[in-house]
């Protein structure tokens, strides 16, 4: 009994793996757990927000060391939020999609809506990832 509670508290390797996969591919964690409805809603929300944000011309943040002074620190919170999108962020980072930092790009009327949706996608995926982990551990039905 105590051992089972300890496992629930810490989480098994499988639970951590499920959380990791949920982060890497939005919705996949719940799919692995057989929670199709949740996978559709949570994964769908993250994918929609991310793709919608990109289509609006949103900007993805990164900390590349070229910033001066405190602007490097200002890049950290949005980068953490963007990183929540997992594989979607990594894919865009690899192929340099959405990282353009030119005035013409920022002049688009939908630019700010775009990067806001990209931030929201990452933050929602963090929630989805924690939900998948909790289900896998047994804290949630």
């Amino acid at each position: 009994m105590a051992r089972r509670e300890a496992t629930i508290e810490a989480g098994s390797i499988q639970s951590w793996l499920t959380g990791g996969i949920a982060w890497l591919i939005p919705g996949a964690g719940h799919l692995l757990l057989g929670k199709w409805g949740r996978a559709l809603v949570l994964g769908g929300a993250v994918w929609f927000c991310f793709l919608f944000g990109l289509s609006l011309g949103g900007h993805l943040f990164s900390v590349n060391g070229n910033e001066q002074g405190f602007s490097a620190l200002l890049q950290i919170p949005p980068t953490v939020a963007n990183l929540g999108s997992g594989g979607l962020y990594l894919f865009c980072w690899l192929f340099h999609i959405g990282f353009a930092d030119d005035p013409g790009h920022a002049a688009r009327p939908t630019f700010e809506y775009g990067w806001m949706f990209l931030l929201v996608a990452g933050l929602l995926n963090y929630l989805a990832m924690l939900d998948a982990f909790d289900i896998s551990v047994g804290r949630k039905p």
Partner: peptide, 18 residues
């Protein structure tokens, strides 16, 4: 409205059981 729809769907799914 789009943001509110998406965020509320996720919050509802994550926070409640039935």
């Amino acid at each position: 409205t789009t943001f509110a729809l998406v965020a509320s769907a996720v919050f509802g799914t994550v926070n409640k059981d039935t």
